[in-house]
Design a protein around this nucleic acid. Structure first.
Lengths: 253, 253
DNA sequence: ATGCACTGTTCATGCCATGCACAATAACTC
DNA sequence: GAGTTATTGTGCATGGCATGAACAGTGCAT
């Protein structure tokens, strides 16, 4: 118990201590808080769900809670911290995976992850510099446990988890930017075709015919619902891991 | 030549027309522009290189060019357009890939891509909603051409490119957030250890031992230079693609 | 020569994150 | 019970951002 007895918590990245629920709200002196961190985070989440991450600004959140902007700083030290809490809340509970079928688990996990991103697309806009929070840790934990039967060393299990995480995020991002069927038939019926025409012209003018050709492919033309790139990529990843697991030389290290 | 003779260009996403160089600067009447789009984009790039994407704000760019903020709107229609141009510029020329060795090409390409991201980490912060621009198209074209020998249908070639793109981005992002060796030895010698200790405690308190264990692994403790997750993941992806290419049933469609 | 199109500046608006001082409040101390 | 003290919510304030509108200068086209 030296001079920095409590600096253990002070030195943490923004939101970490709050996210892991290590704040002693006991025996506090002055005026009682009229709200709670949870309430504020919930309000911010609702705003983000409705209008994207930019809508979760401090003034808007404060208005929704019914309080002045600066009052939020009594609950959250910065906007960055708020975002960390909102993001962790948005992850929700980790999926339950089979423990005797690693390939099944490694199929289910990225599907569930991608579903989370599709349900809350603004999660893709959360800066990736966020620290490890309870829900994200739980997701990772579930996958690591389910991959144990592979017998891979811890390091390679983690790397495999990275592959699956990356794939789910990437696909969710592609889908978010892809047009939805409703958007296709609605507002701009031929605008999309015009853009495609423009790009085709420009691409061929620069001898980028391979890209131009691929843009003619149904997968590029199709809307978000008919995209099967996720399954294809996932199958390659799992095949690659499986080949490494079964056929591989005794894992180094 | 109807009422919307030139609306072909007007309806394009921000920056597209400008990025593909389809602006007629000929026979213009009034005062001659004192600067150029290229100069402005270069200034913004320099700022982003120095202090990240947030430093490429319109006031800062304008100050660097030596002009008022609003003067930039004579060259660029919005900040979004500027970012599109800056991003395309940052990609630079696509790599030259071997055309008779698809696996070699599929190894080289993501390495080069990741190098680009490491050289300009702020590229990871560019919103992914940007349209296809000349340099990104050239990168994609190079890879697609090099993957032709696989004999895969166009759609699957594109999906394979997605896998490699995703992997390179993800790894670059991991490395960016990882501590650099200099940062490790410098400023905060034991702060990192403290955060790790905090997380370990919290993780085990919630029975997330698998994650806690993995965090003890050298790959998690190590700095950015000793991370070999990129090679591991790339090998899995390429193995998965190769198995699909050689052993696969005749490609559906 | 004159008009018109184009540039760059000035002025202005409405967002945003955040800091500081202050009044109201409620526990703790005596 | 009275005073001290910590804590909350508010009001005021600052500096940054993207962007719009009006305007004066400038140079080609007629």
């Amino acid at each position: 118990m030296g001079i920095d007895d409590h600096s253990e918590l002070d030195a943490l990245p923004p939101g970490l201590a709050s996210a892991w629920d290590v704040v002693d709200t006991s025996t506090r002196r002055g005026r009682k808080p009229a709200h709670s961190v949870d309430e504020i985070v919930a309000a911010a989440t609702a705003l983000a769900d409705r209008d994207g991450i930019a809508a979760a600004s401090l003034p808007k959140v404060a208005a929704r809670v019914g309080v002045t902007t600066n009052a939020l700083y009594r609950y959250v030290s910065s906007k960055e911290e708020l975002i960390v809490l909102v993001a962790d809340r948005a992850w929700g509970a980790a999926p339950t995976l089979p423990l005797d079928d690693w390939r099944g688990a490694a199929t289910l996990w990225p599907h569930r992850l991608r579903d989370r991103f599709l349900a809350r697309p603004w999660l893709l806009d959360v800066p990736t510099t966020v620290p490890l929070t309870p829900h994200t840790a739980a997701w990772l934990d579930a996958l690591i446990v389910a991959l144990a039967p592979t017998g891979l060393p811890a390091r390679q299990v983690l790397y495999s988890a990275y592959l699956l995480d990356s794939h789910a995020r990437y696909d969710a991002n592609l889908r978010r930017n892809a047009p939805t069927p409703s958007a296709l038939s609605a507002a701009h019926p031929d605008r999309r075709r015009r853009v495609r025409g423009f790009l085709d012209t420009q691409l061929r003018a620069r001898s980028l015919d391979a890209v131009a050709d691929v843009m003619q492919d149904p997968s590029f033309v199709a809307d978000a619902t008919t995209n099967d790139g996720f399954e294809f990529g996932l199958a390659r990843i799992l095949d690659g891991i499986e080949a490494h697991v079964s056929g591989g030389s005794p894992p180094a290290r």
